[in-house]
Design a protein around this nucleic acid. Structure first.
Lengths: 214, 214
DNA sequence: AATTGTGAATTCCTTCACAGCC
DNA sequence: GGCTGTGAAGGAATTCACAATT
């Protein structure tokens, strides 16, 4: 086990490996190797080994990796044995969809509250029963419900202000869906998932290949 | 204008710059510089200039960049003056939310169809009126509606199969929300937005800082 | 024999620093 | 004077290739 700095790229790939192992486990595979993983999922075997060895020696030379064991270790490294309580800011379409989304395998992320500025939404619940609070209640609800992750589903103009609010409320990590670059001072971790960027990168690609023009 | 290969990182940053310029334009700023942009949005000025010059010389030495002109050029580079017609596979919560999502400034992405395997959903519409078709109709609707981008909002188990279907139907780019690594043969561009990965990277961060434990 | 774990080599990306221009 | 555009330098991330190990 090294003490070097782990890059975001590596952490990102750990998730990929975990997804691959989930798949293998479902298929009934009990042992695998970096070579087999690399081949099946279009990765580089040396990279898989390098990524894994930053966290300890998990493999058996000449044999490979036990799927179950590696899966558990990755879950542990990623902190997926802790439950993370989530609050969503913005109870519009996206916020509601995420609140009721159950797309995660063995989900340690529990959405426990929605928040909205619009009084007509406050007091209601998502279809699955997650309650909607006002922004005034943010601080107290975050404390009471022990919310660690805030998900921003608000328009671009409001995102910076909301980020400041949730940080002030004591939240430790933010997942931002608003198409803005957030300015964050404190030690809070921010991850931005910008849908417009994803679409635009596809658009760039489409613009640069006029396939059937002769 | 160079002919070098443009990396995904660069394209990604073009979107960031465009977002920043949108913001400046709203604020009424007409001229800016790489230094000002870098300072305000925590970027590196040399990188901004390098990224931009891969597509031509847009700036004026000693002065900087005209906000409007640069904005238009970036839009053009990213292909945002072409309208891109979008089909969404999977009319669950997420698919519906995306169909009716209008979070994009001056949106060139038009969602024109939803597709679902579940017969009880087929024939209906999203709240905003986007019709839901069966998967059997995929090929004909993609052709008729000239759909270029397919968005996968299906469970992990179905994603690979659906990817094959949309590619067969003639779609040219895929935005994948399913937590799987898709195996794509053809020249179709795939961008995966994996929510579980985002949450897991936050979880990793949270696991590695136990702040108020003494 | 097969596969891991890892230094060395390579490739790619970012930043520096300054010439060229307005 | 100030800013762009860019070659050169520096730093990171990836891949190679092989010694170590089962």
């Amino acid at each position: 086990m090294k003490v070097e700095k782990i890059s975001d790229f590596t952490v990102y790939r750990l998730s990929i490996y975990l997804r691959c192992l989930d798949h293998l486990a479902v298929t009934g595979v009990t042992t695998t190797s970096s070579k087999a993983l690399a081949h099946q999922f279009q990765l580089n075997s040396a990279q898989i080994r390098k990524d894994l060895t930053s966290f300890g020696d998990f493999g058996i030379r000449g044999v490979g990796y036990k799927v179950d064991e590696l899966r558990n270790r990755l879950r542990k490294i990623l902190g997926l044995y802790n439950v993370h309580r989530v609050g969503i800011i913005g109870a519009g379409h996206l916020g509601m969809a995420l609140a009721d989304y159950h797309g995660f395998p063995s989900n340690p992320f529990q959405v426990v509250a929605l928040f909205d500025r619009d009084p007509s939404r406050v007091g209601g619940k998502s279809p699955q029963g997650i309650p909607i609070f006002t922004l005034n209640e943010l601080k107290s609800v975050v404390a009471r419900e022990d919310i660690a992750i805030g998900v921003l589903c608000v328009p671009a103009e409001e995102a910076q202000e909301m980020a400041a609010l949730v940080i002030d409320a004591g939240i430790q990590a933010i997942l931002n869906f608003a198409p803005v670059r957030l300015n964050i001072e404190s030690g809070v971790k921010v991850k931005t998932m910008d849908l417009s960027m994803s679409f635009e990168s596809l658009s760039y690609f489409l613009a640069r290949r006029q396939p059937e023009v002769s």
